[in-house]
Design a protein around this nucleic acid. Structure first.
Length: 727
DNA sequence: ACCACCTGTTATTAT
DNA sequence: AACAGGTGGT
């Protein structure tokens, strides 16, 4: 049997992992050491050599992107699709199981998935029904509390409040929240996992069935598993523990949502037979980039210990640019990208990485100005847009009348004369009957108990939903969506808005029909959708995979994303922007003890995304939450070996304005500049008239300043030639 | 009940 | 800066 196609592309360590005899395996895989390759080749090995049917294998990842990549690469390696193999995210696979066994799981057949925003609305609703003040019980915190408990597999009854009245109250809200979800047939993200775990616990014959089937489990990014996910895997693996897990403790960046690095150690403790393989050769980056990354991560305590090395060339030093402000930062980055593209570089080989989504804006503006195609990942995504969620809510309510969250969302959207008073009556009745809002509204209408005008409006709404549901029957998915858009009055409503925003919304709604069409038609209905009716599958897809924000996937684009979103990806040219204390490491992480190391791991992740070039940048002033700040350079910059750094531009060359309240005191004066030019200085130019100095660059005879002229607009001028007169 | 406007609040990371 | 929620006029 020729297995060279599986083994030849592997190094010794990779081969050891791939060919390990049956039994638990933990692969500690450093960044760029071929982690995905090992997973994929392991699957191929099991199929090709161990004669395991793909049908008996389960592969779990954390993101849809990772799952899709694994599926694609496996298919490429095998030459055929690995039909029957379950590949998906924890959430996707759990969802699939719950759809198949909704009855045993205690869910209604048409249960709907709550995304984070939906969940917050439900929490608000519950807080109100308990008459708790939102100021004292911030919905966000309550939401975090609930999710954190669920991530630990703790139902309200099992939460240890230790007599703390504050926690007791939170538990009360948690319980009420659960009751609300149960009645409305709503399942949040954490619930998908926990409910599946309980499904197995409560139905041993079901568990036995899946254990029998999935003798081989592959897990990606094991360091990101939370308590429930660990239990989920352990339960499914059973005593044999045939888990092939790949992970890297240095890339654990999801602690804030319950991930536990300790699960790596726990696995080896609870399955003592676990074979540990270390992948330490990096194939991705230059040795310079690797040295830089290793130096930074070395500041962390208690690592499991790996030393990444490469046989690659040293390459270029890392570049560091200190920008005047975020616009200057973006300008520099985009300038660098332009040069890269001019020299024949591919735009899609470039990534601009940052700590928080809000930072994308300055880069987007600069990229648009330079007409460079780009794509932003994250942020507000397609299925998270308000108009899309409105439309989906119509579909969801048509599918499940008890879905209170959807009911609340659209009962008066578009406005149809159902106001707060009417709604209050419906809620009150629902509480009284312990029923859904839909049921309560029905009763009120039937009894004619509300004012006739309100009752008519309410009745109109109920009939509208019923009409949508009945007209949808038998139609292909995209026509169902199209039909609902029309019948709901949503399309009309948004069309009436002739503003820019309104037009965009109409476009999005139309795009939703297209999305439905391609979802159903492309023949690649996600496998977890099998056996589901297309609408249910589409709605689940919308909740579980929010879709990309924008960008034309057809053309090569510069990639903009957060550091978190970049994990698992690699690029020839990587920008790490906003390297500032308070931004990265983030302020909120600095305020809580013990969270700095995760930020540092995030920095490690960022650096190791780069193959050839890494450019770091920070701004000396930055508008943050509407206010001007004067941040200090990130500590991570000081943790980099300075000999690996090349500072692109010497620091201050033109006098800076005095900073407020001692934020920064070094007001340097540039040698060789005529007069006292400084930022904010009013100047006069012989041709352009008067203006204000906005920005500066370079030094000596090359110094340039940006001046915003009252009539001529903003211009960059070489100070030596411009003849500027301070006014 | 609806809409436009104002005011106060709040700011990561994401399945 | 952005947004949710509240206020006041229609």
């Amino acid at each position: 049997m020729d297995v060279s196609y599986i083994l030849d592309p592997l190094n010794d360590a990779q081969r050891e992992a791939v060919t390990a005899p049956p039994g638990p395996v933990l692969v500690l895989a450093g960044a760029g050491s071929g982690k995905t390759r090992v997973l994929v080749h392991r699957a191929a090995w099991l199929i090709g050599v161990e004669r395991v049917s793909p049908w008996g294998m389960l592969a779990v990842t954390f993101t849809n992107k990772a799952a899709a990549e694994m599926r694609g690469r496996l298919q490429e390696l095998l030459g055929v699709p690995a039909a029957g193999m379950w590949i998906g995210t924890f959430h996707g696979l759990s969802h699939r199981l719950l759809r198949a066994h909704w009855r045993e799981a205690g869910l209604p057949e048409a249960f709907q998935i709550l995304d984070a925003e939906d969940q917050q609305r439900v929490v608000r609703r519950v807080l109100r029904s308990l008459e708790l003040d939102e100021a004292r019980w911030p919905p966000k915190e309550v939401q975090r509390f609930i999710n954190a408990r669920k991530d630990e597999a703790l139902r309200p009854a099992r939460v240890d409040h230790r007599g703390d009245p504050y926690v007791q109250q939170l538990v009360r809200v948690y319980r009420a929240y659960e009751e609300h979800c149960a009645r409305a047939g709503l399942v949040d993200f954490a619930e998908l996992l926990l409910r599946t775990l309980e499904l197995w616990h409560g139905h041993p014959q079901l568990l036995a069935h899946y254990r029998e089937r999935f003798r081989h489990i592959l897990v990606d990014e094991f360091q990101d598993t939370n308590a429930v996910q660990y239990d989920w895997l352990k339960l499914l693996a059973g005593h044999s523990g045939q888990v092939f897990a790949v992970g890297d403790d240095d890339q654990s960046i999801y602690g804030w949502r319950g991930a536990r690095v300790e699960n790596l150690k726990r696995l080896t403790d609870e399955f003592p037979a676990t074979r540990i393989v270390r992948l330490e050769q990096n194939y991705r980056s230059t040795s310079t980039i690797l040295r830089a990354a290793n130096a930074v991560i070395a500041y962390n305590q208690g690592r499991m210990g790996k030393s990444l090395w490469t046989a690659g060339e040293p390459g270029e030093p890392l570049e560091l640019y200190s920008a005047f402000n975020e616009q200057d930062e973006a300008r520099y980055v985009v300038g660098r990208i332009s040069a890269w593209i001019e020299h024949g570089g591919a735009p899609n080989e470039v990534a601009v990485l940052y700590r928080s989504n809000a930072q994308s804006r300055a880069f987007e503006e600069a990229l648009i100005m330079s007409a460079i195609p780009y794509r932003v990942y994250g942020g507000l995504r397609f299925f998270e847009r308000a108009e899309i969620k409105d439309a989906l809510a119509y579909l969801r309510l048509a599918a499940n009348r008890d879905d209170d969250a959807s009911f609340e969302r659209i009962v008066n959207q578009p406005a149809r004369g159902i106001g707060e008073r009417t709604l209050a009556a419906v809620r009150e009745r629902a509480r009284h009957e312990d029923s859904s809002l839909w049921h309560a509204a029905r009763l009120l209408v039937a009894e004619g108990a509300t004012a006739t005008r309100a009752a008519k409006a309410l009745q109109g709404f109920l009939e509208r939903i019923d009409r949508i549901a009945s007209r949808m029957r038998g139609l292909p998915l995209h026509e169902q969506v199209d039909q609902a858009l029309g019948e709901s009055g949503l399309l009309e409503h948004y069309k009436a808005d002739r503003s820019e925003k309104g037009r965009a919304r109409v476009e999005n709604l139309e795009e939703l029909v297209n999305a439905a069409q391609s979802f159903a038609h492309e023949g690649e209905l996600p496998p977890e959708a099998e056996g589901l009716d297309p609408l249910a599958a589409f709605l689940a897809h919308a909740a579980l995979e929010a879709g990309e924000a924008q960008g034309d996937p057809g053309q090569p684009c510069v990639q903009l994303m957060t550091l978190h979103a970049a994990k698992g990806l690699e690029f020839s040219l990587v920008f790490l922007c906003g390297m500032e204390e308070g931004l990265f490491p983030h302020q909120l992480a600095l305020e809580e003890s013990g969270r700095l190391e995760e930020e540092r791991r995030l920095c490690y992740v960022g650096l190791t995304r780069g193959r050839r070039h890494v450019v770091l940048s920070y701004a000396e002033r930055r508008r943050l939450h509407g206010a001007e700040t004067f941040p200090h350079p990130s500590r991570f910059l000081y943790e980099l070996p300075q000999e690996l750094l090349h500072e692109v531009r010497p620091r201050v060359t033109v006098a800076r304005p005095a900073s407020p309240a001692g934020a920064d005191t070094d007001v340097d004066h540039a040698p060789g500049l005529p007069g006292a030019l400084h930022l904010g200085q009013r100047v006069a130019h012989p041709k352009f008239g008067e203006g204000v100095v906005l920005n500066y660059e370079g030094k000596g005879s090359h110094a340039r300043v940006q001046v915003n002229f009252e009539h001529a607009g903003s211009k960059w001028l070489v100070v030596a030639y411009a003849n500027l007169e301070p006014v």
